[in-house]
Design a protein around this nucleic acid. Sequence first.
DNA 1: GATTATATGTCAATCGTTTATCATATGTCA
DNA 2: TGACATATGATAAACGATTGACATATAATC
Lengths: 325, 325
Amino acid sequence: MATINDVALKAGVSVTTVSRVLNNRGYISEATRKKVYETMEELGYQPNEIARSLLRKQSHIIGLIIPSVSHPFFSELARHVEYYAYQYGFKVLLCNSHLDPGKEKVYTEMLRRNRVDGIIMGSHTLEVDEYRNVHSPIVTIDRKIDDEIPFISSENYRGGELATELLVSKGCRKIAHICGNLELNLLANQRSDAFRDVVTKHGVEHVIIQTDMNVFDQEQYERIIRRLLEEHPNVDGIFATSDIIAAFAVKECMKAGKTIPRDVRIIGYDDVNAASWLTPELTSIKQPIEEIGRLAVELIRKQLEGEPFETENLLPVELVERQTT
Amino acid sequence: MATINDVALKAGVSVTTVSRVLNNRGYISEATRKKVYETMEELGYQPNEIARSLLRKQSHIIGLIIPSVSHPFFSELARHVEYYAYQYGFKVLLCNSHLDPGKEKVYTEMLRRNRVDGIIMGSHTLEVDEYRNVHSPIVTIDRKIDDEIPFISSENYRGGELATELLVSKGCRKIAHICGNLELNLLANQRSDAFRDVVTKHGVEHVIIQTDMNVFDQEQYERIIRRLLEEHPNVDGIFATSDIIAAFAVKECMKAGKTIPRDVRIIGYDDVNAASWLTPELTSIKQPIEEIGRLAVELIRKQLEGEPFETENLLPVELVERQTT
DNA sequence: GATTATATGTCAATCGTTTATCATATGTCA
DNA sequence: TGACATATGATAAACGATTGACATATAATC
């Protein structure tokens, strides 16, 4: 593979000159500039970014740690992160933690060894101290670590409120709430707080069920929901904490011979694309996934450039009513 | 950030010794090894992989270029690629081309500048020559470039056959086939060849409709299918070339008051996770996505290590019959 | 004719690591 | 005693670029 030396040699100029052309600094005549570009073309020369990174102490790489790209929410998030990263001149290193603390730790170390410019953390099984040990700019999605590390989240409490209020206002008398693991210190848990509050306020009967949030075990979802319907056959409203869970709820309800939304009203969360692929189309609480992705990259950039930035970033959510309520 | 020099200084040994510990070569006493490890721990030292990459001329990074991670097929593929890459000690750089030839070109150049060890190409808008210019190991998904570059695909013709035969055997009299852009030189187009052959063989009436394969324009799908149902109200079988398209077909058919599978039978392709989230669950042709991902990484590895490898890799497909047929 | 802007070159240091070479110990074994 | 194995160090080159300092040459400008 051609080096800057080869280019200089072949073009009959010095490496300094080639470097000047490459980086647009100092005086360069149009003639040599052209000559150099031609030679680079002929040799198929591409500057070695690794050498540049070493010198500049900037890799222009952002590490993205998420539970799994195959979860619709994170796959959409990853797409937007990649899109905006690219706009700002960053590349994205993809890491799926599968919510395994060991893997998550190893990934943060790997990213550190590779001197990434920043890390976007969407998976949270680590202890607070371990985040501080990372030493490079971090942005956290849906979890507040401390007052230093910026995080992005949407109005989870508001979302839970909107969802629950909707079910109540539609006349549901017994509402089930299916959420992720409440042990994990996630801001998403505020949705469940809101659920509890609203349902209590209106004196509506309710059930809360926790899952592992593990998309790969789809059978777990089926099992949990089937059990819910068996133990509480009179449930007439379900608020699921993700659209995927909601989709399974729809499926199991229909299997049980219930008509949606007549017998059971169901609302999901996130409003991923898949929510509108379903029949009936899923009512959901929309998170601004694109904006979350954009902001995450933006916050890394601001930290790098020493610009001031907000630590708390709460984005608005929105009720999208479709056919399941 | 601590360097190997800092470690050596603090541990009271030479850099050579630290390097020997780090790379497990030469003689090292247990005592110094321990001392060095402790010092690294204290300093939070992580070796600079950029410097290593420069010297070793190996970045241990694989570039993954796909149309979009938010398309379920590619999001699952990306997850498996990342998983196996990690097993082999590679990292994954994510690139979404959005099927834009310009972006795809720029991405291959970027990956080249970053000296990635290999590229997995799942997006194919480039000319054959441009693949050859990449110079690093490539694996292509679903497209054959030439006799040199290895590609992975599944038995597309067989898949098309299975799908079409199923619809015919269920008694469909007029079958629609919705496929991607047949201009792109993709092996997936063989599904359409099979469709044509089977349908002709049985003398069954049929329609073929092309789409842009652009997931982000979901309205396009809706429009296309709505038009199909208007212009050919007597269609009683639909073979879609992706599960997403099939999901929209299900939705539009139900909107048109048709019962599935009584009035219209629908079969998708890929068998992504989402296929079983739907109600009714989608019949589909299953591609071995995990194996495709595994093999892709494996083929990069083999090229790097100079091991012999197969150029043509055709993996088996499987009919998964569910509720839409 | 002196000054200045433009254009290019040489040289060497630097980024953080690895590794080869050579040197220098000490300890062990025949 | 000599030959080896073990353990560590000093030194320098290399990976591929960038950059500052300094030199030199031509052309344009006052």
